[in-house]
Design a protein around this nucleic acid. Sequence first.
DNA 1: TTGTAAGCGTTATCAA
DNA 2: TTGATAACGCTTACAA
Lengths: 337, 337
Amino acid sequence: MRKGPITIKDIAQKLNISVATVSKALRGFNDVSADTKKAVLDLAKKWDYHPNAVALSLVKSRTNNIGIIIPGFIIPFYASAISGIQEVLSNNGYNLLICQSNESYKDEVTNTQAFISSRIDGLIISMSRETKNFDHFRQIEKRGIPMVFINRACYDIETPRVLVDDYEGAFNATEHLINTGRRKIAHIAGPPNLSLSINRFNGYKDALKKHQIPFDKRLVIECDLTRESGYVIMDKFLKINPQPDAIFTVCDAAAYGAISRIHESTLKIPKDISIVGFTNEPVSAIIDPPLTTISQPTFEIGQVAARMLIDLIKNENPAPPYETKVLKTNLVIRDSG
Amino acid sequence: MRKGPITIKDIAQKLNISVATVSKALRGFNDVSADTKKAVLDLAKKWDYHPNAVALSLVKSRTNNIGIIIPGFIIPFYASAISGIQEVLSNNGYNLLICQSNESYKDEVTNTQAFISSRIDGLIISMSRETKNFDHFRQIEKRGIPMVFINRACYDIETPRVLVDDYEGAFNATEHLINTGRRKIAHIAGPPNLSLSINRFNGYKDALKKHQIPFDKRLVIECDLTRESGYVIMDKFLKINPQPDAIFTVCDAAAYGAISRIHESTLKIPKDISIVGFTNEPVSAIIDPPLTTISQPTFEIGQVAARMLIDLIKNENPAPPYETKVLKTNLVIRDSG
DNA sequence: TTGTAAGCGTTATCAA
DNA sequence: TTGATAACGCTTACAA
């Protein structure tokens, strides 16, 4: 009885030929006789031979594995982005080693180290919301492992990025609220170490400025991107006098939380208070009330990042400066504002 | 200049010792002098040495990679289950090779083949909704690769499974509708090749029987588990005369679609028609109206499956019969019925 | 305590 | 057209 999977050695032995010949036959080289080739192929099929990718990786110094680190699988943005990534990478013969950081810097570092040992051919990553130290990214960089950031990028290192126009999206969202007559517009902001938080905050501020609405810092509170924090912050906003008449949130999840809190108050959406989110998660259309939000091309972000990564891998010696792709957002008007 | 990553050979050369000694020093063996060990460790750290997991895999015939195949990342059930899987597997030193089948049998087979070549140590899988041929699972089985099914299991092969009590959940859901006075209860069923569809359908039927409500086959239509199909089927139900006064759906997504269709009619939920889903996705609480549904311990399902898989891997020669773990569901009553 | 060498499954170079 | 053989980076008897 055999111990492990069939190897070319097994086939060579059975056929009384050398492993070199088997290897060539299997890969369809033309310097092997038709008879030999047929014999090898038939036996390989009969024995359900599958080449050992591990051995191949060792020889080629290339694993065809791509590492992905995202904050969390349950965040719809990333579920969709990964789908886009896989579509492109699978079609190009890559496997995906995926892990989530759970928004933990420590986990992110651990994952990075594991990927380095795994000898991934490339990395697509979106930082955890608490990442402020970037040494682990520099490790990747020094090793020459191609790396693409999506959505939450690191600006301390020179690297390709795929983002959306956060500033413009936030500007449009805020201006939409202004155009519908709102004047006391609050902002549930994101963690300040993420550039998307800053950009969305700036878009919000500049829209106010353009329409000569004074900026009131009491109307901006940072959340941690969760529904729960949206709820808690909305509670604080309701205690301000006079209350805001509109909320722009850094993400849909925070908007859901804020809406829950408003439902518990006497205020009606959008009669008394409007709310606009960011991302356009699949469910934002069916919540109560359907959420006005900024849609992001999540699937496309994944596709674009994957294609950039493949280019980087194929192109030997990819050198900075790298490209930052900025995709467009789109205001989706529903009932909430 | 170096070409690839640092190897033990590089360290051995620099220190004028053998690779065997370096290897032992690195792994903290006690048959190496303190001085040598320190020198090796220091240099390894200085050079940011990371062992080549590929080479290790080849030697050990073990990759520490686990394959996961799920129907889709965007299905909240799987996002949560994967989180549970990763929690357990990461803590045990495994990496996750994840791919989605996109509900395609063909993709599922392709993924399986890729995993076989990758020499994964184990597989956790949930079948695509169109899988009716199980030869690819038999391939895995024959190779002795430990495999655990979650949620959508294959009953044609002897294998461990982690499921929820679909029958009981469906029974409780239906009985709840009966207890609230409903009598004309329709069922949006799942694809019949998935055992969960059959079990949930049987739970529905038996609840009717228990309460002497005649089964009407016009009130059962199969969906493909998407929101869209829920919408289309609800449309058909509305054309039946008299209309059903309640709907039990095989999954939350189908319920969302049905609700959208009802919103477009003159019927009010739950006054005119009740609806109960299955899974308790995170958003089911915040849609309009909040959905009564059967909650599944999705994260726990992942954890349990991962632990079973590890047991299988550790335990040489795991032999059938394998365990099928059935977790409990829970009726979550909200406003929809 | 250290080193030599075989082996893991494959590819690739060079001879035969 | 085929076959030895070194190499990929590491572990592990076994020898020194």
